[in-house]
Structure formats: structure tokens, C-alpha cells
């Protein structure tokens, strides 16, 4: 098999806030009945994490499960494990109404790191979402738009945000984040 290459080859924008394209990152889109016990068991078996509540993301080591919509999850796990995970989901959920697709190569993942407040501002400047610590905390995921493209982001810890978008718009998203980061903090979120 050919070597997997991430969208921007781990492009890196250095500064007080750094923006890096990380990857390749394994991702699976899983659709089905989120409230079904068998569905939850299949997710736990593959990731070790539980099915997240509305607009939440659950972690288990390097794996994560993100709530995308009332019938859709995004499973994040190491790139090399995706094939086996999809097979395992297909086996575990056979006979039920579900869909599991490997979307690793269709997406790009970015990491924005820096001081907690300014990191929130980098995204807040680009998205019509409330990034204040009260409205958006650890464990939350928000799907929205980043300027003109769809994106989803969450905080892995204060001062570190992850963001996924379609691979086809990876350069656009990276340039947006890098420009927003380079413009410096606004001082809107008084948090470190």
C-alpha cells in the first residue's frame, strides 16, 4: 500500500500561537441509532470510549468519539487502526440500520496551541460560535463554519484546540487559522 500523506504534509505556522496540520489521522463516520445499547457497545469495543451526549466528545487514550448530529458520530483513532475498526463495526452492527465509513483521507486535522484565551480567539475570529469558557468548555465539540467552509472543533485541553475540515479545503483552513493566529490576541477572553 502507498504511504499515507496528510493534506498539507504537516504544515506548521510558528508564533505565540502555533497552528499545525497534524495527521494523517484516522477517522470513521458512524451513523446509526445512538441510543441503541448494541450501538454503544460496538463504539466502546472499537474505541474504549462511550457514546457522547449532544455536542460532546469523549476520549479514551488516543481515541475519541465526537457527536456530529443526532444520528452520527465521528470516531477518531490512529490512522493504521481504521481498517480493522471499520471491519469490527461492520461485524458488531450487522443486521441493524447503520453506516460505518473510513473518511480518514477525506479530512484534515489541525491543532492550534498557545495560551488558553488567545487560542479561543483564533477560532472565535473565524466562526459564528460562542467560544467563551462558559459556553464552550473541555469535552464540547462545535460544528460550524470557519469563514466560508464547514469545520468542527474541540478543546483537548485549555490552550489546545483541534479542528477538522474537509481535506479539499485544508489549505484555505490552514491559512485562515495561521492568519488569525498571526494577527495576535484581542484580549476578549481574559483567561491566561
Amino acid at each position: 500500500m502507498s504511504e499515507a500523506v496528510s493534506a498539507l504534509n504537516n504544515a506548521y505556522a510558528k508564533g505565540a500561537i502555533t497552528v499545525q496540520e497534524v495527521g494523517p489521522q484516522g477517522m470513521i463516520t458512524l451513523r446509526g441509532d445512538l441510543s441503541d445499547a448494541a450501538f454503544g457497545a460496538a463504539v466502546a469495543q472499537v474505541t474504549g470510549a462511550s457514546v457522547p451526549g449532544q455536542r460532546k466528545i469523549t476520549h479514551a487514550g488516543a481515541n475519541a468519539v465526537a457527536w456530529m448530529s443526532p444520528d452520527e458520530l465521528l470516531i477518531l483513532l490512529p490512522y493504521a487502526e481504521v481498517g480493522a475498526a471499520v471491519s469490527s463495526l461492520n461485524a458488531a452492527l450487522a443486521g441493524t440500520h447503520f453506516l460505518a465509513v473510513n473518511v480518514s483521507d477525506a479530512r484534515a486535522l489541525f491543532r492550534v496551541t498557545g495560551k488558553p484565551g488567545p487560542v479561543r480567539e483564533v477560532i472565535a475570529k473565524l466562526a459564528p460560535a460562542d467560544l467563551s469558557p462558559d459556553a464552550f468548555a473541555l469535552g464540547d465539540i462545535r460544528r460550524t463554519r470557519l469563514a466560508q467552509v464547514a469545520a468542527a472543533f474541540w478543546l483537548t485541553q485549555e490552550g489546545e484546540a483541534n479542528l477538522v475540515c474537509f481535506r479539499s479545503v485544508a489549505r484555505y483552513a490552514f491559512d485562515l487559522l495561521a492568519t488569525s493566529a498571526a494577527a495576535g490576541p484581542v484580549g476578549f477572553f481574559r483567561q491566561g
Binding site: Q54, R55, S69, P70, P128, D130, T144, R145
Partner: peptide, 12 residues
């Protein structure tokens, strides 16, 4: 009503 987000017009 599905994800509970207060979405402004440009997100819709």
C-alpha cells in the same frame, strides 16, 4: 432543535 446550537443566519 436537533443539536441545540443557537445558530446565526450564516450557519443556516
Amino acid at each position: 432543535p436537533y443539536c441545540g446550537v443557537m445558530a446565526e443566519e450564516t450557519e443556516l
